[in-house]
C-alpha cells in the first residue's frame, strides 16, 4: 500500500469510527464532541480530495458552528430536562441493527459498482471550465454557485432564512438563552476577544474578496463572522435581545434580496433573467449573503430575535 493511500484509508476509517461513536455513543454530550471531531476529519478529507472550498466550509460550519449550536442546545436541555440530558442511550433494537446493516450493504454495493465503472469525463464540469473564462472568474466553485447555478444558491439562502424563521416560531416562548458564563470578564478572555475579533473580521473580508478567484466566498466568510458573533455572545459583549430591530431584520433578508436583484436586474436592461452582470455584481451579492449568513447563524446561537450591546 502506498503512503498516500494508507493516509486516505486511515482517514476513512477514522471517519467511520467517529460516525459510529456519534450514533451509538452512550451519552449525548459525548456524541456532540464526537460530532465536532467528525466535522474536522471530514474537512481534512475534503482537503485531501482537492476541494478546499468544501474543506473550509465544513471546518467552519460543520465542525465549528454546528458544534456550538448543539452545545447550546444541550445546555438548554440541561436546564429544561436534566434527566433526559444525562440519560444513557437506550440499547439499540434489532430493527436498528438490521437497517444499519442494510444501509451499509447498499453503500458498499454502490461504491463497488462505481469502482468497476469506466471513468466518464464529467460533462457539466468540463462545460464549466470551458465557459469560466467568459465570466472573468478564477474559482470554478464561485462560478457554479453564483453564475451557472445561481438559482440553487437563491434557494439555499431562502432555506437558511426559513430555518431561522422556523426556529423563531419554535422558541418564541422559550425563557432560555445563552448564559454568559462566569469568568468571562477575566483579562485573559478579554485579550482573546481583542485579538480574535479583528483577525476574524480580516479573515472574513479576505475570504469574501478572494472568493472569485481562489477558495473562499460568502459561506465561508459568513461562518467566520458568525464564529466571532458566538464569541461575543459568550463573553457578554453582545447580549441576546427580545425586541426585534429593523436593522437586524434587514441583515437577515439581505442575502435573499441581493440574489433576487441579481435575478431581476438584467430584465430591466432587456436581457433574460439572471443574465450575468460581471464580477462586481457577484461581489455585491456575496457581501450581502455574508451579512445574512453571519446574522442568522449568530441569532440561531443566541436564540433570540435580536442582539444588543452588553456592558463594556
Amino acid at each position: 500500500m502506498s503512503a498516500p493511500l494508507a493516509v486516505d484509508v486511515l482517514l476513512g476509517l477514522i471517519l467511520v469510527g467517529l460516525a459510529a461513536q456519534v450514533a451509538i455513543g452512550e451519552h449525548l454530550f459525548r456524541a456532540i464532541v464526537f460530532y465536532v471531531a467528525f466535522g474536522l476529519s471530514m474537512s481534512v478529507i475534503w482537503a485531501r480530495l482537492g476541494a478546499p472550498d468544501l474543506a473550509l466550509a465544513d471546518a467552519a460550519i460543520g465542525a465549528g458552528l454546528t458544534g456550538a449550536l448543539m452545545m447550546v442546545a444541550f445546555r438548554r436541555l440541561v436546564e429544561i430536562d436534566p434527566k433526559q440530558a444525562q440519560a444513557q442511550a437506550t440499547r439499540s433494537s434489532a430493527l436498528a441493527v438490521l437497517i444499519g446493516v442494510l444501509a451499509a450493504g447498499m453503500v458498499a454495493t454502490i461504491g463497488l459498482t462505481a469502482l468497476t465503472l469506466e471513468q466518464q469525463p464529467g460533462r457539466a464540469g468540463l462545460q464549466v471550465m470551458e465557459t469560466l473564462g467568459d465570466t472573468g472568474l478564477g474559482n470554478p466553485i464561485t462560478g457554479v454557485l453564483l453564475v451557472f447555478r445561481g438559482f440553487d444558491t437563491l434557494i439555499e439562502m431562502t432555506v437558511l432564512l426559513t430555518a431561522f424563521v422556523g426556529s423563531r416560531v419554535m422558541t418564541t416562548r422559550s425563557r432560555f438563552y445563552v448564559a454568559t458564563i462566569a469568568g468571562f470578564q477575566l483579562p485573559l478572555v478579554r485579550t482573546l476577544v481583542a485579538v480574535i475579533l479583528p483577525l476574524a473580521a480580516l479573515i472574513a473580508m479576505h475570504l469574501l474578496w478572494i472568493g472569485s478567484d481562489q477558495p473562499g466566498g460568502a459561506f465561508q466568510a459568513g461562518s467566520v463572522l458568525a464564529g466571532a458573533g458566538v464569541l461575543l455572545l459568550l463573553t457578554g459583549t453582545l447580549l441576546p435581545a427580545s425586541k426585534s430591530r429593523a436593522l437586524v431584520r434587514l441583515a437577515l433578508v439581505a442575502g435573499v434580496a441581493s440574489l433576487c436583484v441579481l435575478v431581476l436586474a438584467p430584465m430591466l436592461r432587456g436581457q433574460v433573467a439572471m443574465a450575468y452582470l460581471g464580477r462586481g455584481s457577484l461581489l455585491f451579492a456575496e457581501a450581502l449573503m455574508m451579512v445574512s449568513i453571519a446574522t442568522s447563524l449568530t441569532l440561531l446561537f443566541a436564540g433570540r430575535p435580536s442582539l444588543k450591546v452588553g456592558r463594556p
Partner: peptide, 20 residues
C-alpha cells in the same frame, strides 16, 4: 500563535471551572 492563544485561554477556563 493562534493555537497557542486558544489553548492557553481554554485551558485556563477549564481549570478555573474545575477548581470552582
Amino acid at each position: 500563535l493562534l493555537a497557542l492563544l486558544a489553548s492557553t485561554v481554554s485551558a485556563h477556563l477549564i481549570a478555573r471551572h474545575s477548581r470552582a
